[in-house]
Simulated scan of single mutants.
Amino acid sequence: MDSFFVYIIYSPLTDRLYIGQTQNLQERLAQHNTGYFKNAHTHSASDWEFYHTIACQSRKQAVRIESHIKKAKKRKYLHDLKKYPEMSQKLKEKYES
């Protein structure tokens, strides 16, 4: 079974957070830091670092969790995800494949 991840990265330079999903965390972080995604708002900085990650059972689950988090549109929600691990677990249970 392949692993997928929902990730939240943070740029100290821009004080921005970005949410995405991938199968390879290290490769994806390198892509964000080298400007690989020309039209993404991550292109504006090269100091992205992992803020929080959630390991998922499938790509379907990762996409659903990513969508859920993006719809929340609140920075506090992202901080709470990091602070309270049980929130990530509940999301995984809610969106089990």
Rank of each mutant, 00 (worst) to 15 (best):
V63K: 00
L17W: 10
R75P: 00
K73P: 03
H52P: 08
K70M: 12
R28P: 12
Q57P: 01
K94E: 07
S67C: 11
R59E: 04
E27L: 11
V63E: 06
H41N: 14
G20T: 00
L81G: 01
K82A: 13
S46C: 06
N33W: 06
Q57S: 12
L91C: 07
S88K: 09
D15M: 06
T53Q: 14
P85E: 04
L25I: 15
L29T: 14
G20Q: 03
S67L: 13
W48T: 10
C56Q: 03
A55H: 05
Q31F: 10
M87V: 01
I54M: 07
K94I: 06
K38I: 10
Y95G: 03
T22I: 05
R64A: 14
A55R: 11
Y10H: 15
E66D: 11
H43R: 12
E86K: 11
E86W: 12
Q31V: 05
D15N: 15
N24M: 01
H41G: 06
I9H: 02
K60I: 13
D2F: 05
K38E: 11
F5D: 07
H79L: 15
S67A: 14
G20M: 00
P12E: 11
E86I: 14
F5V: 10
I69M: 08
D15K: 08
I69S: 09
K90W: 04
Q57A: 14
I8S: 13
R28S: 15
F37D: 07
S67N: 13
S46E: 04
Q61T: 03
C56Y: 03
L81Y: 00
L81R: 02
Q89H: 05
T22Y: 02
A72S: 13
D80H: 09
K74D: 15
T42Y: 09
H52I: 12
K90L: 13
Y10R: 10
E27W: 00
S3V: 09
F50E: 14
P85T: 07
I69Y: 08
A45F: 09
A40P: 04
A45V: 05
L91Q: 04
E93G: 00
S97Q: 02
K82P: 08
T22W: 04
E27F: 02
R75V: 15
M1V: 08
Q23N: 13
R64F: 13
F4N: 14
K38N: 04
H43T: 03
F50A: 10
